[in-house]
Write a protein that binds this DNA or RNA. Sequence first.
DNA 1: GATAGTGGCTAGTGCCACTATCCACACATT
DNA 2: AATGTGTGGATAGTGGCACTAGCCACTATC
Lengths: 199, 199
Amino acid sequence: MSIPTIKFYVREGLLPAGELTSPNQASYGETHVQRLRLIRALLDVGGLSVASIREVILAIDDPERSVHKLLGTVAAGLVPRYDRESHAGIEDARKQVAALIAARGWRVQQGNPASEALAVALAAVDEAGHGAFTEVLDAYADAAERVARVDLDYVAREVAREELVESVVVGTVIGDAIFSALRRMAQTDASDRRYGQST
Amino acid sequence: MSIPTIKFYVREGLLPAGELTSPNQASYGETHVQRLRLIRALLDVGGLSVASIREVILAIDDPERSVHKLLGTVAAGLVPRYDRESHAGIEDARKQVAALIAARGWRVQQGNPASEALAVALAAVDEAGHGAFTEVLDAYADAAERVARVDLDYVAREVAREELVESVVVGTVIGDAIFSALRRMAQTDASDRRYGQST
DNA sequence: GATAGTGGCTAGTGCCACTATCCACACATT
DNA sequence: AATGTGTGGATAGTGGCACTAGCCACTATC
């Protein structure tokens, strides 16, 4: 980790400045190193932008913020920015999402970034001519519920707040990357079993 | 969709040039529009780079390529590039991944990009001081298997090759985005049920 | 007293997805 | 005939982002 990069992070508000033990020696304690590791994990593995990480860091350092709101902040940081919402079937997709939320009994806000992202993705699928894809939504939702329960169980095992908020971040951001990798591996396996011989 | 953008895609090899009906009028048929929608979906929703999309397009247009290999190509395009493999515990993580593959009986190659990505993510988690996270791996793997089965079922419903390869792409790339969104929604719901009242 | 470190600042780099402009060409309109 | 419009092909420029380099005044250490 080069010095200019650390200076950059400090400037961007991701990292507190080192505490001056003497005017030319700043001590970067264990918390700094820990924070740096978190930043790198969010940046490299989670794929978050620096701006999103700043939001997450602010949420972590705000003791007033509840765990629930923290998770919302992290989730918002994960959602990529969809400039062009000019999709044709976005309204239909939104209704579909609302129906799914109702059917599942999920307590999710209407304008939630995640549900909006889902609507955009569904609209894109539909536009690409794969409307039948919606039939797998239920199976996906089942699996998602299962994963989310595991995630929350993992978060709940922590007691100290500092540990807990980091668990939330790790469990959502890095967990996303881990699950995606596992999914691709499972797909590879399933594909090998079905189509592997025909090559 | 602006003309310069289309020209850019043609230049990058994502899109075949329009067929000249007359020297100053090119006709972009339905296949072109379909291809454009696919590109936009992979770019906006899937988050793939133009270079990755080119690989995917080449795989789609190569009739010799088997479905299994096509899925491998798509999966490879999804994996972000990890420049710095200089993680400390990467070797331990690789062993952990190998153990998981063996325990699951997955037919996954050793140097698979997905399993490598998993190793990097696990190493990052461990480095961030959340080694206990590995305990959720099994639950994740269960859910991933379930999702992968649904994905392959969806792909298998198609008969024509052209439809099939597009299903593979949609089912993996866009499916990833859809599942991530669902996961965040389920997490929001689960979090609300556990911590929502305490705010 | 030269060195090397500090925070703070401005500006530059490299990558990437476009985007703008220019080119020679050919038909269509005026 | 003259002009305009559209084609593919090419080069170069734009804007955003994650750094990265260098300068500044200052100061404890070698």
